[in-house]
């Protein structure tokens, strides 16, 4: 293995970049093993006297498993629902011909440009009428209205050779069959990579759950962090960092295990052009 000398500078650049991006993650990990006073005394990445007491405090004061499972259920529901509806909608926009198609498509896509401040209050009122305040469904439902999936999947579906679809049409395969046997297998990497992003975004969602959720049994991980952050009484920093670390643990763990697959998926799913 010999690396070209002109490439070394690029490697250096990337190494610096990686270090910069990894540092905060290590910082939070290391702080979570410090005592409250050590956290403020030194910013060394290696705790002088590592302690699990922050994790102890997390697990004794909150029902972590419950919170973890709430977060997971919400993220999974949102991801699956969004993927399914987006695949169907994108299919209709690419392979059906009906009047008003373009108009309808742009109507849906325009919602990407609606800032969440617009929808916050009306959505709260709507969901409260059907009794979904303080429930994980109340957190999940408005997240379903997200057009990025439709947009991206439509791009990928447009890349499917028309000839394949014409053959299927001649064989009188129904649209559902075409969707199942041709479209989905061809754009599987794209579907999966979009799903991963959906999942991460929902997993980390903070603003909306903070409005919706009232009882601790319905808490999500980003809210759990807020249970240790008080501007009035001060913040238990090691615990906050422990919760932060735990919040990242599942996505990071999944990522570490499946990184080859995830990265490969992204690599294959480039928007054409």
């Amino acid at each position: 293995m010999k690396i070209n000398s002109s490439e070394i500078k690029w490697h250096l650049l990337f190494i610096i970049l990686v270090l910069l991006l990894i540092y905060p993650l290590l910082f939070s990990l290391s702080t979570s093993f410090k005592t409250m006073s050590e956290a403020f005394q030194s910013s060394s990445l290696i705790p002088a006297d590592p302690t699990f007491s922050a994790y102890d405090r997390v697990f004794t004061t909150i029902n972590f498993v419950q919170i973890l499972s709430n977060t997971f259920i919400i993220a999974a529901l949102v991801t699956i629902f969004k993927l399914v509806t987006s695949v169907f909608a994108a299919y209709a926009f690419v392979f059906f011909h009906f009047k008003g198609k373009t108009a309808l498509y742009f109507l849906l896509i325009s919602t990407i440009f609606i800032p969440f401040t617009v929808t916050m209050i009306p959505n709260y009122i709507t969901l409260s009428k059907v009794g979904f305040v303080d429930s994980i469904y109340g957190v999940a439902l408005p997240q379903l209205a997200d057009a990025t999936g439709i947009f991206l999947l439509r791009q990928y579906m447009k890349g499917i050779p028309m000839s394949l679809m014409e053959v299927a049409e001649l064989e009188r395969a129904s649209h559902l069959t075409r969707l199942r046997t041709i479209v989905v297998p061809l754009i599987r990497p794209a579907i999966l990579s979009i799903g991963i992003i959906f999942f991460i975004n929902s997993w980390n969602e903070y603003v909306w759950p903070a409005i919706m959720i009232k009882s601790e049994v319905n808490y999500t991980l980003s809210l759990a962090l807020q249970m240790f952050v008080s501007s009035e009484g001060g913040t238990d920093v090691p615990v906050a960092m422990a919760v932060a670390t735990l919040t990242m643990l599942l996505p990071l763990g999944l990522y570490a295990v499946c990184q080859k697959f995830i990265i490969g998926t992204f690599a294959q799913s480039g928007i054409k052009g």
Partner: peptide, 28 residues
């Protein structure tokens, strides 16, 4: 412009995208 050992970077660089913004804010 790079040939050898370049694939590791995308794996490592993506890891920070997993963070929650509220966590990122406190850390920064």
């Amino acid at each position: 412009l790079m040939k050898k050992g370049k694939y590791i970077y995308k794996t490592l660089l993506f890891s920070s995208s997993l963070i929650a913004l509220v966590v990122g804010a406190i850390l920064f």
